[in-house]
Amino acid sequence: MKFAKEITRLRRIEGQARGVICMMEDERSCVDILQQISAIEAALRATRTKVLAIHAQESIAAIIESGDEEAQRMKLAELSDLFGKFNR
């Protein structure tokens, strides 16, 4: 399965999110809660980057195999837009 590692990572993130909820219910320190939220955000960014890389690899392989220059230009433009949109 191509997303096996990402699914595992997302399940870990899900557990972290539940942990933050418990921290809030227990009225833990805001600093501790913010640190955990920051860790969740970093894990989500890493997951997004990996999924984008998988998409790029698959797309590039497909357009190379197609030999269609117009499709290649369109797919490369799409990938460029995706990297710009999601790697901020």
Rank of each mutant, 00 (worst) to 15 (best):
M1T: 08
M1R: 10
F3I: 15
F3D: 14
E6H: 04
T8D: 14
R9D: 09
R11F: 01
R11W: 00
I13Q: 08
I13S: 08
E14C: 04
E14R: 12
E14G: 05
G15W: 02
G15I: 05
Q16G: 00
R18H: 02
R18M: 03
G19A: 04
V20P: 02
V20A: 02
I21P: 00
I21L: 06
C22V: 01
M23E: 04
E25C: 10
E25Y: 02
E25K: 15
D26R: 15
R28S: 11
R28W: 07
R28A: 12
S29Y: 06
C30F: 00
V31S: 09
V31L: 11
D32M: 12
I33A: 05
I33N: 07
I33W: 00
L34S: 15
Q35D: 14
Q35M: 13
Q35I: 12
Q36E: 15
I37G: 06
I37Y: 01
S38F: 10
S38P: 05
I40K: 03
I40M: 06
I40T: 07
E41V: 09
A42F: 02
A43I: 11
A43K: 11
L44C: 14
A46Q: 12
T47D: 09
R48A: 15
R48H: 11
T49S: 14
T49E: 15
K50W: 05
V51K: 02
V51A: 05
L52C: 08
A53I: 10
A53K: 12
A53L: 14
A53G: 13
I54D: 07
H55P: 06
A56G: 07
A56N: 09
A56V: 07
Q57G: 03
E58Q: 03
E58F: 01
I60K: 13
I60F: 10
I60G: 14
A62Y: 03
I63C: 03
I63Y: 00
I63R: 04
I64E: 09
I64P: 04
E65P: 10
S66R: 12
G67H: 10
G67R: 12
G67I: 08
E69P: 05
E69C: 08
E69F: 00
A71V: 03
A71S: 06
Q72N: 09
Q72P: 02
R73S: 05
M74H: 08
M74F: 04
M74I: 10
K75I: 02
K75W: 01
K75A: 03
A77P: 10
A77M: 10
E78R: 14
E78F: 11
L79R: 06
L79F: 11
L79T: 02
S80A: 15
D81Q: 14
L82H: 08
L82F: 04
F83V: 11
K85N: 11
F86W: 00
N87W: 00
R88P: 11
R88T: 10
